[in-house]
Amino acid sequence: MLINPRERYFKNQGIKEGREEGREEGIREGKLEIALNLLNNGYSIDEAVKLTGLSEKDILNAK
């Protein structure tokens, strides 16, 4: 079965967007892990925010 170019374009766009979303989520999860490790090693919440770029709320919600 042949896929018309328009269908192929939108299918490829969906795959591309899914990969990008997955990559962004992976980066965020990595930053949260680092933030929690910082807190567990005696760093303050302010230092964890500064070093990871995450918000204080995001870090505290991950605890």
Rank of each mutant, 00 (worst) to 15 (best):
P5Y: 00
N61C: 01
I34D: 04
K50R: 14
I15C: 09
E20G: 09
V49T: 12
L54R: 08
K16C: 12
T52L: 02
L2Y: 01
E29G: 05
E17M: 14
L32W: 03
L38M: 15
R28S: 07
E33R: 14
L51T: 13
V49E: 15
T52Y: 01
E20R: 15
L2C: 03
L39C: 03
E7N: 02
Q13D: 08
I59P: 01
S44P: 06
K63Q: 06
M1S: 10
E33G: 13
G22K: 12
N12W: 02
G42V: 08
K63H: 04
L36I: 15
R19V: 07
N37W: 06
Q13S: 11
N40Y: 10
L32H: 02
E56N: 00
I59L: 04
K16H: 14
Y43F: 15
L51N: 08
I3Y: 00
R19H: 12
N61E: 10
I34M: 11
I3Q: 06
T52P: 06
E21I: 08
N37V: 09
E7S: 07
N12L: 14
G14N: 08
K31Q: 12
K11I: 08
I27M: 02
R19P: 01
I45C: 03
L60F: 05
I15M: 14
A35S: 13
N61A: 05
P5S: 11
E25R: 14
E33A: 13
L32Q: 01
L51M: 12
A62H: 09
G14C: 06
L60Y: 04
E47H: 05
E21V: 10
R28Q: 07
G53S: 12
